[in-house]
Every structure is written in C-alpha cells, then in structure tokens.
C-alpha cells in the first residue's frame, strides 16, 4: 500500500521530513490572519469542490475543514456516513470512488479503520487528506498541536512535552508524538499501564526521545507543555480504566502547581471536564491554549489543503 506516493496526499506524519513539516508550519503561520477572519478569504480553491467524507462522527474536525475550505475560496460538502454500511472497509473505497467521480478536487476522509485513509488514497487519483483513521494517525491534529506549541514556546528543539491519558487508543497521540520528535522535542507518554505500553517508545525518531511513564505527578516538574487526551470510552478503553483514573491522571488544579510557570496546556477536545481535566485548568487564561488549537487548526488545514492542490 502506498504512503504519500503522491506529494499531494496527507495521510500521516510518519514519513514526512523535518523540512516538509516546517514548510507546513510556515504555511500555517501565513494563514492565521485568514483563519481569524482578519483578512479576506484566499482564492486557492476558487472553483474547486472539496468532499468531507466522515465515516465516523466528528464535529470539531469536520467544521474545521469546512471553514478552511471557505477561507480558501472553495466549496465543500460533507458526507456523514457513520454507522452506515459504508463504515465497513470494502465500501469505504467504493463510497470514495463514487464521490471522486462527482468531480471533487480533494477528499478529506475520517474513518474508524487504522490504515483506512491510505486504502482510499491508493484507490483514488485525487489528493486524499486523512482526518483521522482508527487508532493510527490524525496528522492535521499533529500539525496543529505543534503549530500551537511553537507559537507558545518558540522552537521546539530540546523541549519536553507530556501527553497524558489513553495513549494506546489515540491517533492524536501517535501523530503529535511523531511531529514533536521530528522537530527535536522529547515526549513523555503518561497514563495507566493498561493504556500506555512500553512499545509506544518506538514512536520516537531516536532511542530515548519518547519515554513512557505511569506517574503523572513525577512527570510534570520539567515539562514545557501538557497535552491531555480525551478518555475514549467508545474505543473499548473502558475496561482498562479504573475508578481512580482522575485521582492518578486527571489534570487537577493541584497538579498544575507542579508545572514550570511557562508550561502550557493543550487538549484536542472534546473534553470530559472533571474527568481528565478540571474546569479551572481548561479555562485557565494563563496556561490553556485549547481554543488557540482550534483557531490554528483551521490555519493548519488550510495549509494542508493548499499543499494538496498546489503541491
């Protein structure tokens, strides 16, 4: 199966060069004023139609891509096929082929299948953007996470970022970890041993770059940022979570005091307030970059869409 066989596809962070990732980050920066509505829309997608094909439910990512298309002057429609027969692997490709035949220029795909976006990309001639495939990757989230961190912290070389929660079932953790490693940061994956296994250390580009820890209190004192993951009950993580999850791994107001003063907090959303993150932490104007992630998400997705049609 091909990966990034076309430079226009955007299927995963893995396999990108540092330069390619930095080009996308630079393009993201250039799009911020458009994403914020301070400048008029661009015309990159003028006359083009983008299809959002979502075999799995999403609000944030779907709206983010829709907005990004509008900000690039294009038209967009969304197919919400979650739960239908089309969520099965075989018809995933069939559905995608039908939509391609309608003359769309780019397809954004989300599905519950690890490797599903690559399957679609292999079958299609038009560029495909992965908006999350199973537990594999969510590369635009990885891009927007590092864009947010770079904005908050400057260059990420040598920085240390803790990613906390249901790492095993998280495509966000995979993409963001790979992106951080590509930019020279260190990553600490934190969570219960049932959700964060030693084998996740293989996500690092070099040995020791990714560390696994099961002790959140010990993991916070030297980090530059904390990314909290949503506990994903729908991904069968339920049986791996005990009732003391919040006590051990919740980002509480008390834990915040362990962080260095400059450290920022991210969350890909949607948040389970009071479970993995306290209200007051999520809304902390000094540390929380959670809504900034959303804004930069639009700018990042604009960059990826531009890359798809221009290269």
């Amino acid at each position: 199966m091909r990966y990034l066989a076309s430079v226009h596809d955007f299927l995963q962070i893995e396999g990108l060069t540092r330069m390619q990732l930095e080009q996308l980050l630079d393009a993201t920066n250039g799009n911020v004023s458009h994403a914020e509505g301070r400048q008029p829309a661009k015309s990159t997608l003028d006359g083009k139609v983008v299809a959002n094909v979502f075999f799995e439910d999403s609000t944030r990512t779907r709206c983010s891509f829709e907005t990004a298309v509008h900000r690039l002057g294009g038209e967009v429609f969304t197919v919400a096929a979650a739960g239908s027969s089309a969520s099965k692997g075989e018809s995933l490709v069939d559905t995608a082929l039908n939509i391609e035949a309608m003359g769309v220029a780019v397809m954004v795909v989300r599905c519950a299948i690890s490797g599903g976006a690559a399957m679609v990309a292999k079958a299609l001639r038009i560029p495909v953007i992965n908006a999350g495939d199973g537990r594999h990757e969510h590369p635009t989230q990885g891009l927007l996470d590092v864009a947010t961190l770079r904005e908050a912290l400057g260059p990420l070389d040598g920085r240390c970022v803790a990613i906390v929660g249901d790492v095993a079932n998280s495509r966000v953790a995979r993409s963001t970890t790979k992106a951080l490693c590509l930019l020279g940061a260190r990553v600490r994956l934190v969570g219960p041993p049932t959700l964060v296994s030693r084998s996740m250390e293989a996500l690092g580009a070099v040995s020791g770059q990714v560390q696994v820890s099961h002790d959140l209190d010990a993991a916070l004192h030297d980090v530059d940022a904390v990314i909290m993951l949503r506990i994903q009950l729908e991904r069968a993580a339920g049986s791996a979570i005990s009732s003391d999850y919040r006590i051990l791994y919740g980002l509480t107001q008390a834990r915040i005091r362990r962080l260095p003063t400059h450290a920022v907090i991210l969350h890909p959303g949607p948040m389970n307030r009071g479970v993995e993150i306290d209200d007051s932490v999520a809304d902390d104007p000094g540390r929380s970059r959670i809504l900034r992630q959303v804004t930069l998400g639009v700018a990042s997705r604009m960059a990826v869409l531009e890359r798809a049609v221009i290269g």
Binding site: E14, S114, G115, D133, G134, R135, H136, E137, R171, R174, S197, S199, M200, E201, A202, L203, A236
Partner: peptide
C-alpha cells in the same frame, strides 16, 4: 480481543490491536 498483529512496536506505530 481486538488483536490483529503481534503486540509490539510495529502495532504501536500502526495503531493496530496487539
């Protein structure tokens, strides 16, 4: 349950059940 390949580094990266 949910496993489709050897539990290890490759499964961790591919996001497949170990």
């Amino acid at each position: 349950k949910g496993g489709v390949m050897n539990a290890g580094a490759v499964a961790a990266r591919l996001g497949l059940g170990g």
